[in-house]
Nucleic acid binder design. Structure first.
Lengths: 131, 131
DNA sequence: TGAGAAACGAAATGTTATAACATTTTTCGG
DNA sequence: CCGAAAAATGTTATAACATTTCGTTTCTCA
C-alpha cells in the first residue's frame, strides 16, 4: 500500500457516492500539487480492485470502496438515479443461483456483476411527494 | 421500425457475439454506401433497447439482440473471455431475490444488470487441454 | 396539402480507458 | 553499503465509447 494508493482509497471513502476515474484524477491533483495522469489512476484502481478494496460499478463507469473488504465479496449494488448514491449488499443466495446456472451451462465463472438501478427510499418518497 | 433500425437489428442478429456501437457504425457503412455517425447508431440502439429487442452488456460496452423479445426480459448474461461470446439466460428466481432485497431497502427498482464473466464450456476445456 | 412530430445527418466535443515507453523508487542478496 | 532486479509511477499519445447541438428530411394525419 503506497502513498498514492492510500490517497485514492481515502478519496473514495470520503466520497458521497460512486466516483469516476477522472474525478479521482482531479481530486488527487487538488490534494497535493503533483498532477497524475489517467494511467496512474487506472493502475491504482486496478490494484485496489484486485485487493478487494474497491469495486467498479459497470453501469456507471465509476468506482466505490467496498463495504466489507475482509470478506470474499459477492456483492450487489443498488444505484439511485435520484441522488446518485449506491448501496452495497451481500446476498449469497444470488451467488448460489448464478453458480447453479453457470454449472448448467458448463460455464466457469470468474467475476460477477449484479447491479440494480432505481430510486432509493428517500428519493422515491421525494418523487412521490412532488408528483 | 424504420430501415435503419431494421438494418442494425439484423446486423446484431447476424453477429457472432456482442457488438460495439462503433462496429455497428462500420458495418452499416459497409452494407450500403451511406455512412452514419455515432449519434445515429446510438439513437437506434436506445430505441431497440426500449422495445426490448436489444440489450446492452455493461461490462463490455457492447450490444446483443434479445433472445426472447416477446417476454418481459429479466435476463442474465454469461460472457466468455475466451471466445468473446455471450449466452443469455432467464432465471426468474434471481429477479425474485433482487426484488426481495430491494424491498428490504425500500428501493424501487427499474433496471437490472446481471452479468457473469468467465469461460464457456468449450473454451474452458480448450484451456484445460493446453495447460 | 401543410403543420407538427419523429427520425436522421453532420460536426464537434465530452468521457472513459489503454498502449507504449521512460523514469523513479523499493527491495534485497552479496 | 552497493547495485541489480522488480515494482511503481510519470509522460505522451491515442483508442474506444458516448453525447450535445443544430439543421434537414421524412412521415403522419387532420
Amino acid at each position: 500500500m503506497t502513498q498514492l494508493r492510500r490517497r485514492v482509497l481515502e478519496l473514495l471513502w470520503a466520497s458521497d457516492g460512486p466516483t469516476s476515474a477522472y474525478q479521482l484524477i482531479e481530486a488527487v491533483k487538488g490534494k497535493d500539487s503533483r498532477p497524475v495522469g489517467p494511467p496512474t489512476v487506472y493502475r491504482t484502481l486496478h490494484f485496489l480492485m484486485e485487493q478487494g478494496l474497491v469495486s467498479r460499478i459497470e453501469s456507471l463507469n465509476a468506482y466505490v470502496p467496498c463495504v466489507h473488504p475482509e470478506r470474499d465479496h459477492d456483492c450487489l449494488f443498488f444505484i439511485c438515479s435520484g441522488c446518485r448514491s449506491s448501496v452495497e449488499l451481500e446476498d449469497s443466495r444470488i451467488g448460489g443461483l448464478l453458480a447453479e446456472d453457470a454449472a448448467a451451462l458448463g460455464f466457469v465463472a470468474s467475476r460477477r456483476t449484479v447491479e440494480v438501478e432505481g430510486m432509493c427510499a428517500r428519493c422515491a418518497e421525494a418523487d412521490a411527494t412532488h408528483t
